[in-house]
């Protein structure tokens, strides 16, 4: 439903650019009605927005908000996992390490990065460059957008569970600031594995969940089609998580989703990162580690 509303809205807006006076009034009325339907979304509708192929992705943020991005590839053990991208970049004159799940906009792009579902090598690469960030005193910014860690044979053979566990343990001890932004899908341990942070921010229509809604529905009700009920029950929206005290802030999106106003979104994300850095940079390594420990200890 929400996708239909969105494409209808786009069609109306396209016609608006060329419409004459008389048609214009009618179209504006239609536009307002469609926009109204995109307000007060249900949890399930938000999940669908979070999964839209056109939604801004990690590379969108890296390219727009940072300069001098130098990508660091490989886990130094056996493989380069393209479902996680990471490297060094400049953020308003401050060298930072930036990491995120990589999703594509097309099937081809998505095949190349395994739809943003990392294997252990991706998590180990992320941890490797986080330790390097710590060595050089760079704050770390992570962008979370994954349907989950990849449930495949090779991933299991190479220790998917161990890789995630190690990241959780080691991220909790990093002596540099860590800021995580859930931009789209924050699915389970595969999301958390790069998300143990001092500040956790979420886009308005992103979701963060212990299990995919479909997984929850098929486990609990033996029916993956009961996704809507699962979405409502899991408390996975940014608003739910803010209420529960798990995330620190929500970044607003345009009506209809982040893809509808990219400049506005980038501005909001940029200032959210700047604010978080301003708060965290003065803290010492010990203070950061202690506060981060207490943050998670309190959940």
């Amino acid at each position: 439903m929400i996708r239909e509303t969105l494409s209808e809205l786009e069609r109306v807006e396209k016609r608006l650019t060329t419409a004459g006076e008389e048609e214009r009034a009618h179209l504006l009325f239609e536009q307002a009605a469609l926009m109204h339907r995109l307000e007060n979304l249900t949890a399930e509708q938000k999940v669908l927005l979070a999964r839209l192929p056109r939604r801004p992705k990690t590379m969108t943020y890296i390219n727009a908000l940072f300069t001098d991005f130098f990508e660091q590839r490989g886990d130094r053990q056996c493989r380069e996992d393209r479902s996680i991208v990471g490297g060094i970049a400049m953020f308003h004159g401050q060298p930072v390490t930036v990491i995120g799940h990589r999703k594509g906009a097309t099937i081809e792009e998505n095949m190349a990065c395994n739809f943003g579902m990392p294997g252990p090598e991706g998590y180990r690469k992320a941890m490797r460059i986080m330790h390097q960030a710590e060595k050089f005193g760079r704050p770390i910014i992570t962008f979370i957008d994954t349907p989950g860690a990849y449930p495949g044979m090779e991933a299991e053979e190479r220790g998917q569970g161990e890789a995630i566990a190690r990241n959780l343990a080691e991220m909790s001890c990093l002596r540099v600031p860590v800021i995580s932004i859930i931009t789209g899908e924050g699915s389970s341990g595969g999301a958390l594995a790069i998300g143990v942070a001092d500040r956790i921010l979420m886009l308005e229509n992103a979701y963060y969940s212990v299990v995919t809604p479909e997984g929850c529905a098929s486990i609990l009700w033996k029916d993956a089609k009961k996704r809507g009920e699962a979405c409502a029950a899991l408390g996975l929206t940014a608003q739910d998580l803010y209420r529960l005290g798990i995330i620190d802030g929500i970044i607003s999106e345009a009506v209809g989703g982040a893809q509808r106003d990219l400049p506005g979104l980038l501005d909001a994300v940029d200032s959210a990162i700047r604010d978080a850095l301003a708060e965290l940079m003065p803290l010492s390594g010990e203070e950061l580690v202690q506060r981060r420990y207490e943050k998670y200890r309190g959940i």
């Binding site: 995630i164 566990a165 959780l168 343990a169 080691e170 909790s172 001890c173 389970s188 341990g189 958390l192 143990v196 963060y208 969940s209 212990v210 299990v211 929850c216 486990i219 609990l220 899991l234 408390g235 996975l236 739910d240 998580l241 529960l244 798990i246 981060r292 420990y293 998670y296 200890r297 959940i299």
Partner: peptide, 25 residues
């Protein structure tokens, strides 16, 4: 993780890992 406690359960992964790491360190 226990699904019925949602992200609270997910965060227990981070909490337990942090506590174990601190103990080991």
């Amino acid at each position: 993780a226990r699904m019925q406690e949602g992200v609270v359960s997910l965060m227990q992964m981070a909490k337990t890992s942090a506590a174990i790491e601190r103990f080991k360190n």
